[in-house]
Design a protein around this nucleic acid. Sequence first.
DNA 1: AGTGATGGTTCGTTGAACGAACCGACTGGG
DNA 2: CCCAGTCGGTTCGTTCAACGAACCATCACT
Lengths: 174, 174
Amino acid sequence: MALGKNYEGQNCSLARALELVGERWTLLIVRDAFYGVRRYGDFLVHLDIPRAVLADRLANLVEVGILHRRRYQDSPPRDEYLLTDRGVELWSVIYPLWNWSERHYGAGEPLRTFRHATCGTELDPASRCPACGVDVSPGDVEAHTGPGVPAQPRQDPVSVALRERPHRLLQPLF
Amino acid sequence: MALGKNYEGQNCSLARALELVGERWTLLIVRDAFYGVRRYGDFLVHLDIPRAVLADRLANLVEVGILHRRRYQDSPPRDEYLLTDRGVELWSVIYPLWNWSERHYGAGEPLRTFRHATCGTELDPASRCPACGVDVSPGDVEAHTGPGVPAQPRQDPVSVALRERPHRLLQPLF
DNA sequence: AGTGATGGTTCGTTGAACGAACCGACTGGG
DNA sequence: CCCAGTCGGTTCGTTCAACGAACCATCACT
């Protein structure tokens, strides 16, 4: 969804943003990056996405500076994908969207809750801590398994790791 | 992008949200609704979107309760599309996304600024008023033309009306 | 030498977006 | 009464991206 191909006449920051993160799958990849997913294969099993599409999206996200590709071993060469500062700031979009959906379309109990790591309080819809009264940045957010886990939860390693224990965002999952 | 066809295995509120508002054009339609655009023809000229796609998106947005379709004259029958409460709450997603894009990919001066209507102060990235210290809901936001207007701005009636004068969100544009 | 892990690329098929044309209900003017 | 124009769509043939299965290259381990 590169510039010029699509919302070109819009000349609006929102349209530009949607060219960057509005494509199918892109925001779910960023969500997984917040969860600590870093490797191609882990994104693949967790998202159940066509391989070519994943490769394309990762390359785009690196190109626009939302993800950073970092070599973590040389033989065989293996890279991991990490959120840049710019990517981390998308928390202020992703969390409100998650929260909006949870409030209006949630089926009773949530699958996951997001808490202020230092005090354990659930975040408000704007990612603030009601107890401490501060804006909570993603590095201080802990994802907890909620009461709404389905009877037949997913068994891929990423889903299992996410359910197993509370997990601080941005920290590696494995 | 109905449920079951796409992110079905995800079982995540974010994925569900993206099924509702993640399709191409959808969030730009909602943005225009905040600007006060209400009629099919106005969305059409402002977005430059294929007619069939617009009709499809509007129907979906009504179906999931983000827009409400209201008859405003009987002969000939004409309807307008208004944001529901649920739709209005998407401001907490749209504005941070706009702001994120403006901060990281903005070309110098913004095209538009969003100000607290009662005091004229520009909103912070979380749609709060730095002067008053309150969360500003979209009904209290005024959209102003910014200094970054291009040399050849769009001439469709919607774009012209939006440039002409400051305009409170959710109020009808015409 | 063979097997498995990893991170891709290739390619034929399907489905959605595009855009131009058409359509039906109505209005206002001559 | 006829004609042109407006509005809000629908229809349909074309194009382009997503899908998914197969393939491939590199390296480690045995």
